[in-house]
Amino acid sequence: MKKRGSLLVLFMSLVLLLSGCSSITVLDPKGPAARTLSDTILFSIAMMAGVLLVVYVLYVVFLVKYRGSKTKDDYMPPHEEGNKWLEAIWITIPIIIVAVLSVVTVQSTSTVEKVAAGYEDQKPLVVYASSSNWKWHFSYPEEGIETVNYLNIPVNRPIELRLYSFGPITSLWIPQLAGQKYAMSDMVNTLNLVADEQGSYLGRNSNFSGQGTAHMEFETLAMSPGAYSEWVEEVKTTASALDETEFKSLLATSYVGRKTFSSTHLTFSPAPGDHSDHMKHTDMENGNKEHQENKAEHPVPANPEETKFDAVPNVNPNEPLPQSPAEDSNSDIDHTSHDGK
């Protein structure tokens, strides 16, 4: 039974290792949402290590003490039906543990679903993140720009990612900034995150969506607000606009590298009806007639106008978007030159 003893030691040391270890992505948060999650995880590991310890101690003690080779030959184990008090203990204590964890879960879940504390009064940057086989499109409706397979965000500003998919369900996950959420074809999910440290963070699709899933990685670059606006300006002036034909051919291409455009696909290919709370009955209707007609009238059903902030977004579905004249260069902007580090 030495094996399991050493297993216990191994596990405990790993637990200790975890808490001090920064090489583990999930436990190396760079934003408030991921930090909440990291704390929750460490807290639960600590609780569970306690449970494991109790079980393992009893286990080792009983196995050592009551092995047949140690007892006398004529030893006859007693008949035991059970013990009310003991059983009450191992029902009550787990219930308490579960209750504590439930409170932690409910609190932390609602915390990470909302805009991070301390950032509520800032106007969030809305980015539509949509997936298609097998790439990510990031549309910045306010800036009127769009990128493929990379996401640049300003640091210390709440980001509201609106997720949807042009095909199979995908899941957008930037472990160092926030937990993941699904992108699906008939509704928009919202993922709130903030980066409070400049740097480059790996994001990926974590939900299997076919042959190219493993390649659906993207870089998230958290840059200073100044560098961010500079980058936006540069995109607007140097990148080409994205028209419907090009977007269609982009969707049809399986793998592309990074792309940058000075307009978004939302104008001609709007996001699906925005019903993030799909468990409610109301969203059951987003396939019906009226809804589809509405879609045609209001091609961008959920744009920043709906937020409580007064800032006027510069995307208006009824007007052509301001487009940069210098779009013929059609360049994929060299991303590394804007590295925030």
């Binding site: 596990f11 999930v26 991921a34 909440t36 999650l37 990291s38 929750t40 995880i41 639960s44 590991i45 569970m48 449970v51 494991l52 079980v55 393992y56 579960v98 964890l101 932690v104 879960t105 932390s108 879940t109 915390t111 990470v112 899941s171 996950w173 472990p175 926030a178 937990g179 993941q180 959420k181 974590s206 939900n207 299997f208």
Partner: peptide, 23 residues
């Protein structure tokens, strides 16, 4: 199995699962 069980409790926590899901 107890390791499986306690990690199951960890996964059951919705918020933390945002980081474990599909991994």
């Amino acid at each position: 199995f107890t390791i499986g069980g306690v990690t199951g409790v960890m996964l059951a926590m919705a918020s933390a699962d945002y980081q474990y899901h599909n991994t």
